[in-house]
Design a protein around this nucleic acid. Structure first.
Lengths: 344, 344
DNA sequence: CTGAAAGCGCTTACAG
DNA sequence: CTGAAAGCGCTTACAG
């Protein structure tokens, strides 16, 4: 006799036997095929209820579809990733698709590894925020019909759909906003420029300064900030710099960097004097004093667009791949519009 | 000729044919069975490489396992859910398990619906932050061996493993902290008390006041706050109350409520006068002025414990279900320790 | 309208 | 060490 508490899970075959019909009839009833004799259908339903039968969705090897989409994000625990995940979830919900999600933590090897694992599970498609700079490993899979949409960053030599924010234009707008409010010594604090979005935002910073006839002072540029702590230290360092450096504003090009810099400004007591505009919205930006002005990415739109695109591909759209640019928005909250002090 | 770009996905059968061996031999090689003749194994590997063969992990109907765990959270976009998801992901990573995650948005019907969908996909187990107050629909599934661990809230009439924070004790500690710093008119702002964790935290608030011989004034209690906006309004309302009410501190029992109340305190300019302690940590709590003192849930530990428990169950642990209480921690940052003004 | 057969891509169980 | 058979739980394709 069985030792476990496991009652066997009934199959269609068991339901068929109990109802006294063929397995195929059970299949028809479960799938709502209308042409089944109502009497038989009722018997099948009764039998299914009695056995508490549940179909095994994983057993449908022939359809080729799993109603699952794989989602590879930077870090599910980070607010930007979480918001994006949520937007994608909502969009795929209606299609009855569930999300298999994982974090890459900016590790290129994890990207390929997890992509393979997801494909081996035969997800219907993938949405990937790439961590590596080369997605060629996907070419063969694309030819086999695996649908992939890239999010937040462009795939590198690969041709595929991608949904990205207008990083360069948005960054430019943020920096121009600072200039318009009288700032001239605007520092740039950002992530590793090897990350394409970081590079684009830096270009936007340079564009803005160039457009206003302002020099790009290397002493005011800090790349490679990978955490709140590093950003805090870099900002503190800039603020403590020799008088000649005279930073009067910070442009922080990513959410963690913005958070670190806000902390440094407050710690130094200069948050009402040195202006700041960040790229990426941050939680709580409005509750701070001053509120943190940011160029916000439209995470809902990014997620929705990527999900829509992927669904279209899954449903057979074979049109040429496109890049979709989602506009960012400047959210004015105070830190970018501080009055310029007129001390000698 | 085929119209699509879809190159057929090769199967073990194709590899076997190309290598001139039986399908079973390919299976052995792919699974690393050591007893295969090295010459044959090499031939199989060459054939697999030539065809770019990838095993179909979804095809293993006989194992009964899918190496997938279902995760039902309140809202994946909310920082608490996201942090928990991340902790669970990290813990299951090593076991080669991927997460199928979805948000319930506190809708009881979604809980049962999504639970069924996940079970129909034969996930190896489920981690659920329940939205409903009755999990009896799971009894039959438990008997069939579906492993379920509840997180953050206890399952209701059901007996199952659960991992929860020490809500009542933690809330009590937070309120006692306010009393110890001279506060006497401490308001409670919280979520719907129908949510068990909210109810527990309210009990902790009552415990603390009772333990200090302080009355619970209904005029200072606001239940049912479901968003940042509602919390902001409720806090603003309390702060604007008649002088007799004289709130001197806020205990906010959930992250969104804390965020809303912080906003209201700042908006009213009373953030240096009215003390606050929140339950749940919030992003950026340290960057605010004053820093927000909170009773923080240990999301990493909550997630890890739930994942460990589930893995043990999946691996056959049949011991009696337990409730695991994860200690919360008081993080002192300023808002709870404001000096009491000595104005007449 | 109903059902027996073959098949999805693998594995388990069993011969050679 | 290797392989032909049967099976996992369903569906597709085809007869009746």
């Amino acid at each position: 006799m069985p030792t476990g508490a496991d009652a066997a899970r009934p199959t269609m075959r068991d339901v068929a036997a109990l109802a006294g019909v063929a397995l195929k009839t059970v299949s028809r009833v479960m799938n709502g095929v209308p042409s089944v004799d109502p009497v038989l259908a009722a018997r099948v339903r009764a039998a299914a209820a009695e056995l508490a039968y549940r179909p095994n969705l994983a057993a449908n090897l022939r359809s080729g579809r799993t109603n699952t989409v794989g989602l590879l994000l930077e870090d599910i625990g980070n607010p930007f990733s979480a918001a994006t995940l949520r937007a994608i979830e909502d969009e795929l919900e209606a299609a009855g698709i569930l999300l298999l999600a994982a974090s890459l933590d900016e590790q290129p090897s994890r990207e390929e590894e997890l992509t393979r694992r997801l494909i081996d599970r035969r997800v219907d498609g993938l949405i990937v925020v790439p961590a590596s700079r080369d997605q060629r490993y996907l070419v063969a899979e694309q030819l086999r019909g695996t649908c992939v949409v890239f999010l937040d960053r462009l795939p590198q030599p690969l041709v595929a759909d991608a949904v990205v924010s207008d990083n360069r234009v948005g960054a430019r707008r943020g920096v121009e906003h600072l200039v318009r409010h009288g700032r001239r010594r605007i520092a740039y604090l950002g992530d590793d420029p090897a990350i394409p979005t970081a590079a684009e935002r830096f270009r936007g910073y340079v564009d803005a300064l160039a457009g206003q006839g302002l020099p790009v002072d290397p002493a005011l540029v800090r790349h490679g900030l990978r955490s709140v702590q590093e950003a805090h230290r870099a900002a503190a360092d800039l603020l403590a710099g020799p008088d000649g450096v005279g930073v009067d504003a910070l442009f922080t090009s990513q959410n963690l960097v913005t958070i670190g810099a806000v902390g440094a400004l407050h710690a130094a007591g200069r948050h009402r004097e040195v202006a700041q505009v960040g790229f990426d919205d941050i939680p709580f930006a409005e509750a701070l004093e001053p509120g943190v002005t940011v160029v916000a990415q439209d995470t809902r739109m990014l997620g929705r667009t990527a999900a829509e695109r992927l669904l279209a591909r899954i449903h057979g759209d074979r049109s040429a791949p496109q890049v979709f640019s989602v506009p960012s928005r400047l959210l004015v909250r105070g830190s970018g519009e501080l009055p310029v002090s007129t001390t000698p």
